[in-house]
Each structure stands twice: as structure tokens, then as C-alpha cells.
Design a binder for these strands. Sequence first.
RNA 1: GUCCCCAUAGCUCAACGGAUAGAGCUCCUGCCUUCUAAGCAGGCAAUCCAGGUUCGAUUCCUGGUGGGGACACCA
Length: 533
Amino acid sequence: MKISTLETELKDRAKAAFSLDDAGMAGFSLSAPPPHVKADACIAWPISSAKLLKKAPLQIAGELKDALGEEFGAQTVPPGFVNLNFTSAFLFAALKELEKPGCYARPEYAGEKINLEFVSANPTGPMHLASGRGATLGDSLARIWKELGAEVATEFYVNNVGRQVEKLGLSLKARFEGKEPPEGGYQGDYLKDLSAGLPKEAAGWTDAQFSDYAVAEMLKLHKADMAAFGVKFDRWFLESELHQAGGPAKALATLRERGMAYDKEGAVWFGSSTELESDDKDRVLVKADGRNTYFLNDIAYHLNKFSRGFNRLVDIWGADHHGYVPRMEAAVKALGSGAFRVIIHQQVALLRGKEVVKMSKRAGDFISLKELVDDVGVDACRFFFASRGPNTHLTFDVELAKKKSNENPVYYVQYVHARITSIFDNAAAKGVDPAAGFDEAKAVINKEERALMLKLLWLEKTLADCARDQSPHHLTTYLTELAASFHSFYDQHKVLDPENREVTAYRLFLLKSVKGVIARGLALLGVSAPDRM
RNA sequence: GUCCCCAUAGCUCAACGGAUAGAGCUCCUGCCUUCUAAGCAGGCAAUCCAGGUUCGAUUCCUGGUGGGGACACCA
């Protein structure tokens, strides 16, 4: 029985015993006890439900203990916890369940078709290091949601039309002609490199051809950068595709139909006098000069996503766009096609020496993602970005990241995988059958083994936490803790013992589970699980 | 001016409103004749300030202080 199954089971028993409805059971959950408590799992619900039940917590705990029966070793502890202690038979059975494919799927994700858009950096320059944060967050979340049973498509929106793209083209043209980029153009050296590769015919190109060329080249770079970062998008959606399909007109028509667009002062506005409006003020969709605003294009893009069959859209944006969230949410809600949510992550600032500098593509002052990955490695980068919540404001000290790359906790976790692989290699060399059976009832589980087993079972909860908080950082914390449990075990107990086949057999079984969870956890983070280090 | 985010150990980060606030890095003390010392065991060290809600607050609310960001018929 898995932890989640057990939780549901115990919840049902409590629900019946206390004659409560689902709302009354809302706070009921199993959790890992703090380190100093000698128990395998704990329930704090008796304390939190005291008011509802109008009883003393400890009394509720007592009644809950009786309702749960003997099989999970329930104990009451003041002020009102119920602690559980599992039998070894339970632990072995639970571990075996974790080997099944799809064992982490949860019912609430079945049938979810999620479109997750992230990074979507403008194709006006190399991708900088800050994009690594959004990429890590989006890619890991997508993988975690899939593990939980959702259908997820990842998408990168490419702004390949508009003013910035024109400026990019003009800047490239200037470089080609040996001039400095125009006012407000792109100053970075990458355009010098790009112009060196231009064909001779470029001398006769129109401005638009320079733009197209530059965007196509930047897009190639972005795709290569993302691939090198272990991030694969299911679709790179070009804004030009949207216009070719008449997307903005469709979106406008939809909004008009739903009474969410009106004309004023020669422009078309989003909003209405009704309660549907949740933004603070109305916004322009079509300017008085007849051109669409970017807002309308964005609405059209989201309508396009819905039209492809997704019932849930999720965008990941940097905090510099947070002011845009209310109006997009209001607009997408106005489309009436499905759920939409924006995940905001804070910006990455760059520490150069002792100065915090703002990275700017236009000024050409930034550290590229490629440069960082080349120096530090994908694994260390991704683990580093994944290990903090989206709301943390992080300053990236590049020198420190390069210098201390070996001190990144990612190696601590990967080392577990390498050590276990090595043990299995040695088992083969010594003629030990790694799949030998053992008598579960006779296995005497020591303290370190028990800690490892329990830790493995809590991965389920960790993934649920990641989904709840929309962040993979719980997973990095979890893996680090699991690694600590393993290294501690490894140091105290030898696995391969020809004198004791039984112990060897069940330790190998346990280590296979540990290896599996480490590999799975790292895979969810887009980090490799090396066999040797 | 209005709005959003943040403040935990010397540094970088954790902690569904729960029990004695956890890690990593740094510093100090030990441990390789045995499956990989990128490791283990131990030590030093923290919730910005003032109120409030609660049986219980790092967590929620109000007000400060300090830092980051956003406020276009730009894209």
C-alpha cells in the first residue's frame, strides 16, 4: 500500500468514526514526523479539528487511534498527534508498489490537457542566463505533471514580428555595412558575428530580409541552447503563424460576441461594465490607427491554444511582466474557453565582482545561457535553478558558480546513483544474484534501512507538494535528504556479504528502489544519473 | 504616488498554521587495509522591527524598516 492509498484509507475510517463530511476531513493528511520523533508517519488532524468536533485534541486522538485499528501501530502523543509505526511487511509491500509504472499518477490529473508555455524569449539575441530559470521551472513542472498523470504539451512563443524584430534587422544591416547599430538598436557583438556569415547578396537585401535572416539565426541558437539545457519544446509557435491564420480578428470577434469589447475614441477596448471585468481598468485592443495592440495578439494566441484542445493553459513569466497578469487573466477568462493561470518567477540579477548588474540584450551586457552551461555543466545549472522557489529573488554570482561547481549539491545526489551502480557491478563480479529472493518476515530492518525505506515512500508527497506550489524545489530538497539517508546507511553497513545471503538480498532490493527513485527524481529535474563519477 | 515579490545561521537556500526551525558552503575535531572519501560522525551558528488573530505563528492579518520589480493607443 502506498502512502497516498493509506492516507485515503485512514481518512475514510476517520470520516466514518466521527460522522463527518468531506469538508470536515479537509485537514486530514499523513505527513513525515520531525526528526526527533520516533514514528514513521504522523497525523495532526486531531488538533486542527478540535474546534469543529468540540472536543479536546487528545481525546480526538484517542478516538482516532481506536478507529484506525491495530495494523498501523497508531499511538497518541500530546497535545493530540497520532503517530504511526509501520511493520516491515508494510514497508516492503509499499516499496514494491513504487516499481509499477504510473504509480505516481493521481486521480485529479487524469484527463487534464495542459498547455505550458515558458521561456518565450524574444529572438533578438542569444538566450541569457536568466532564461535558465524559466526553462528549469517550466520543464521540470511539465515532467512532474506528466508523472502525476496529466497530459502536458510544452510551448515556446516566438515573437517574430513587430518593432523589435525590425530594429534587429536594421542593426544587423548596419553591422553588415560596417556601421554602428542605429539609436535604440542592438549593440551586442553577436550581430558582428552574424553579419560575418551573411552571403554577398545581402548587399541587395531589403530591411525585412535582414530581419528574417536575423530571426531565423537567433531561433536556431535558441533551439540549440534549449536542447543543450535538456529542454525540449513540443512546439515553437511563431507569432507570424497566428497572423496568417487571422487569429487576432477571431479573438476580437469572440470578445465582441461575448460583450467584452467596445468602441471608444476611435479605438477598440477590452472590458465591459459588467462584473466579469477583473482588471483595474480597460485596455486598448485596436489602436485608433487601426493596428492591433500586443494585448490583442496575446489574447489571440491564447484562444489559439484553446482551439487546439487544451482545457488548461499555464504561462510562466518573469516578474517584470507581473503587471500584465490581471488583464491577461481577465481577457482569457472573457474568452470563456477554459482555465488559465500565470506562474510568476522573480528575476535573476547578475553579480559581477561586487556589483549587481542588470543584464541587457540591447546594450550587449549579459552572460549567455550557453556560456554558463559550458562552464558549469547542465546538471549543476539545472539543480541550482530548480532548488529555489519561484518567488525567491536570486542574484547569480557567476564567478562563484564556476569556482564552486563541485560543491553543488547535485553531485551529492548523483553520487548515490554512482555508488549503487558500483555495488551492483560488484555483485555481478562476485556472482551474487541481485534479484535473489528473501524472506521479508525474517528481515531485521535496522535504523538506517528504515529511514531509507520511509524516505522513498514520501516521494509521492513531495511530488504533490511540487504541484501544489508549482515549483520543483521541494524535489531537490527531497533528493538531498534521500541522498543523506543513503550515504549514512552506506557508511555503516556493507551490502555485499557472501556470508549472509538473506541480508545481501534484501539490501540489494532496497538499493534498487533507492536507485530507481534517485534516477526518477533527477530525470524530473532534467539532471543525469551517472553510473560512475 | 499605487500595486506585486522578498527578508531565516557569516554566505546560498528549506520548513500543508503543528512537536526540539532543517540542509549545503565556510570554520573547527575525528574517520579510508573492507561495495567509489564528490563520503561519514560530531561541533559553532538563524526566524528584520512593533502590534494582532490562534490552543499553537518563520508561516496568516495590520503598520513600519530595508531590498527587488511593475505601473503605455510600447513590444
